[in-house]
Structure formats: structure tokens, C-alpha cells
Nucleic acid binder design. Structure first.
Lengths: 172, 172
DNA sequence: TTCGTTGCAAAAGTTTTGCAACTTT
DNA sequence: AAAGTTGCAAAACTTTTGCAACGAA
């Protein structure tokens, strides 16, 4: 996970010159905040996989992993997630009642297909969309800082599951 | 607000042949539900203006309007909002901690520019986006049912406000 | 009369916060 | 030592729900 900082570091596709840990430390320093074992454990865990997660899942995973000395409390997780978002390491989105987080640092800009049956999030990239958002914004004198597109529907797997359950005759 | 049902009814741009009230009644009937004074008051109020609103705002407005006999309780407002969404009259989105609602029935498909300073929502339409979403989905064998795009940034008014406060010299 | 509806208050679910004890710098 | 951080429990918020009284069909 942690590498010599002179080497480029790859998470997904974008190459960056610091590990998430290093980048977070930098953020903390710049804010007069401190590097603690809780923050280290949390960042390490969050960037060891590239899945979407919510606060509750993260809390569970951390508790299962480290029941001992460096447990991270619920409150601390929420506080750290806010910091990671502010530091630009994570992106937050609301997908249901809970907020969902995903990697931002070292990960390319993308949007999502959201399957409303199984809740899976499929990522996709579209440069056209970036052009479109600029074109729209220009028309309103709007200064864009970002966007979020979620296309909802049914993923291939769930569509197939349905077909197996519903006989073709039922569809007439 | 209420018109002869043989006349077309216009809310925004799309012409429909029933008032929201009529359409809601139809939905209620089809579900074996009943037309009550609370539901009438609520639908009437919601479709008397074309703004985005959340449950709390709506409850306040209704209480201010009708303090007397046909008050609508908090619980009933939440229950009715769910029904209006299911009936296709309203669309629900989560923009912060609260859910925000907007007209769906009789109103054209659109997306939003969201100003992060003043929270204003500016609506826009883009046919290109509809094409884009189909193209993307096709690539994943995904069956689209809808989408939501929110472009965030700073609206013209807020950008100007900033300029007035910050002298050009500060920007160097 | 039957059965859906309402209002209330309590409950639920997620996130935030006050505070005393504890760590990092 | 000074100042930020943690964990806990309580609080804050939004939304949902059980239930008895009420109202529509």
C-alpha cells in the first residue's frame, strides 16, 4: 500500500505522486490537525479496496478488523469521513437514506448506473457529458465546480433474474 | 386551478388532459384509496406554485394557510408525498439532509444546476443528455428507467455578489 | 357498516455534539 | 504544557409507524 513517495502511485487509472495516507497527512498539517492512529487505520482501510461504502459498513468492517487497541468509534468515523471529503480524498453522495462514499483521489472522474433492484453501482466515463455540462452552464452564466449524473434502471443480471422467474407467457 | 376536464390543462409546458387533482383521484380510486379533505388541500397547495420544496416547508405553509378545520398533520403530509410520487405527480430527490420534491406531472423532463452558495435550483433541458444516457446504458446491457443530473457550482447572482465583496486586487 | 385515514406520540434510523479523559506535538 | 482528538452517551434531525378515534363509500 505505502510506497516510496518518489514513485508514482496508481489507484485505478490516475497516477498521483502521493499515497492517500501522505496526502491526508498533508491536509491535516495544513489545517493544524494531528495524525492519529485512528485516522491512519481508517484511511488505510478505506483505500485498500475500491468499493462504494456507507458509514455503517465502514464501522462494521473496522470493528471486525481491529477489535483491539486501535478501534475507531462511530463518532470518529463520521468525523474522519467529513475530513476525507474536505481533503478531496473521498466523494460523498446520497443514494438512499444513508450517504455513500467513494474514492476521489487518484481515481478518474466518472458517473454511475444505479440498479434499483440490487443497488449495484456501475461506473462509466463520458467526455461528452463534460462538454455538455459546460455548454449548459455557459448559457446561464453559471460557474461549474462539478456534477453528478446517476442513470437508474435495471442491470443486466437483474433483468435476467426476472426473465427466469416470469415465464414469457406472463408477459402477453 | 381547476378547469373543465374537457379542456387541456397546462402546468409549465406539457399539456395534459386532467388537473393534478383529477389525476390524483384517479390514482386513489385505482388503489382503493379515498379522497379526503387533507389530500385535496395538499394537492391543491402543491400544484398552485411551481417551486421545489421539502416536507418541512410544505407543513409550515399548510399550517399557515389553513390553521382551522382542514389542517394536515406532519404524518399525513409524509404519507401523501409518498403517494404523489407513486402516482407520478411529484418527483423526489435528495439534495441535502432533507428530500426535495418538484412537479413531475404536466411538467417536462429536465435537470438542474444547483448553486452551492444560495441553494437555488435552475432547471434546464437537454435532449443530448437523453441520447447519451441511452448510449451509455446500451454498452452495459442496462435497462434505463430514468436519470438525474445535477450540475453544481455558483450561479450568476452569487458570483456577482462575490465580486462586490472581494476587490479585484485580492484576486491577484 | 366497512375499511381506509388521520393525528398523535412514540419509535426508528442516520448523523452530530458536549464533555471528560487521553494523545500528539 | 498546550491544543487537538477520542469515545461515550445524549441530542438532533428527518421520516416512519402503532393505534384509537374518525370519515368516506
Amino acid at each position: 500500500m505505502i510506497q516510496d513517495s518518489h514513485t508514482d502511485f496508481s489507484l485505478g487509472e490516475v497516477r498521483v505522486s502521493m499515497t492517500p495516507q501522505e496526502r491526508f497527512d498533508e491536509y491535516l498539517q495544513s489545517k493544524g490537525k494531528r495524525t492519529t492512529s485512528q485516522r491512519r487505520v481508517l484511511v488505510d482501510h478505506v483505500f485498500s479496496r475500491h468499493e462504494h461504502f456507507d458509514a455503517d459498513e465502514l464501522i462494521d468492517q473496522l470493528n471486525r478488523k481491529a477489535r483491539g487497541a486501535d478501534r475507531v468509534s462511530r463518532a470518529t468515523v463520521y468525523r474522519a469521513l467529513d475530513e476525507l471529503v474536505e481533503a478531496g480524498l473521498l466523494r460523498k453522495m446520497s443514494l438512499g437514506s444513508r450517504s455513500v462514499y467513494e474514492h476521489d483521489y487518484g481515481y478518474p472522474q466518472h458517473d454511475h448506473l444505479h440498479c434499483t433492484e440490487c443497488d449495484e453501482l456501475i461506473e462509466f466515463r463520458s467526455d461528452e457529458l463534460l462538454a455538455l455540462r459546460e455548454a449548459v452552464a455557459r448559457g446561464y452564466g453559471f460557474r461549474v465546480t462539478g456534477h453528478r449524473l446517476t442513470i437508474s434502471g435495471v442491470c443486466r443480471a437483474c433483468a435476467e433474474k426476472r426473465h427466469r422467474k416470469i415465464s414469457p407467457l406472463d408477459l402477453i
